[in-house]
Amino acid sequence: MGATMVKPLVKNGNILDALPSQGTLHVVMLGLDSAGKTTALYRLKFDQYLNTVPTIGFNCEKVQGTIGKAKGVHFLVWDVGGQEKLRPLWRSYTRCTDGILFVIDSVDAERMEEAKMELMRTAKCPDNQGVPVLILANKQDLPNACGAKELEKLLGLNELHNYATPPNKSVLNSCSSSSSNSNLINGSVSNQSITESSLSVHIKPNLSDQSDEKNTSAFLQYDTHKYKDSGEESTKKCFQNIKQDNYNKTASNTTFRGWYIQPTCAITGEGLQEGLDALYDMILKRRKLNKSHKNRR
């Protein structure tokens, strides 16, 4: 999704605002067409929903992290069109980038294999080896959206392990991630309505030790009179989200893999800032690993 053929970087006649400042991280946002890339970009930029049209070309915006380690950090995000004819251009944007945001339509099971193929092609490109990949599992507000664990299998993310870490395994093992920031993926959701929507959810953070179904009402609040799904299916969906949250927390405390799954809803912005924080954490860990690797030579 997107806006115009090439979105101008200059706004209000101030060209300086368009130039990357010192310390700005360069990130490319990829994914199949209609995955919600541009919606996510402008939600991050303006913190509001903007109606978009398919991107023919690219959009570029500087966004800022607002939570966790990424708070105050600037990211120059290049959102590249996802139509099949544009995908050969992705390689030009990923070269020398600090991180890759790959947006997935969590509901579109029919195109999951296609998304996997493009993700693997991008991540395994020689120019991109070692570049952290954040998978934004978009459209989590919709019924039947795949959870993080399911997406890991469908996208074959275990295949990326050897491509996203330095070749020196001793360095990798000595730099295992023991992140003290438990809010990388905390599952907190604002009580913001989704365009005439649907679902109002509030999940309390730190649910890793509370997964029994008897505790559902303590964690989840549903606007059931608006939600079209049945109550039973709604409850099932809620528990999928809780398990997904717990899965990501466990994953964040394991050895650096170079990829991370963040459940999101681009329309409301839920999970996007958490995603930037997770990406920034991976970038820092990659730099630390590279530095350690160089020092051991």
Rank of each mutant, 00 (worst) to 15 (best):
L155M: 04
N162E: 11
K149I: 03
E113C: 09
C146Y: 00
C125S: 11
Q83V: 10
E61N: 09
L136A: 02
V107Y: 06
L86S: 13
G147K: 00
H74W: 12
V73W: 05
L157S: 02
K71I: 08
Q129E: 12
Y49K: 01
D98E: 15
A70G: 01
C125E: 05
M112Q: 02
P132F: 06
T39M: 04
Y163C: 11
G81L: 09
V77M: 08
N168Q: 10
L151C: 03
I104E: 00
A164M: 15
T66N: 13
W78Q: 08
G130S: 12
N173V: 01
R91N: 06
F75W: 07
K153D: 02
M120I: 11
G130N: 11
A137R: 03
C146S: 05
N128R: 04
P132R: 04
R121T: 02
Y163F: 13
E152D: 03
C125R: 12
E84A: 15
G82Q: 07
N128T: 03
S106H: 03
V107Q: 13
I56Q: 05
I67A: 06
N51I: 12
L101G: 02
T94A: 03
F102I: 10
L89H: 14
L86C: 13
E110N: 12
T165Y: 07
N168I: 09
V131K: 00
F58C: 01
N138I: 05
I67W: 03
K124M: 13
G99I: 06
E113A: 13
L136F: 09
D79N: 14
L41E: 05
L50P: 02
T52F: 04
F102M: 08
L76E: 13
L50C: 03
G57E: 02
A148R: 01
N144E: 07
P88G: 11
R111P: 15
N162R: 10
E84T: 15
P167N: 14
V73I: 15
V53Y: 09
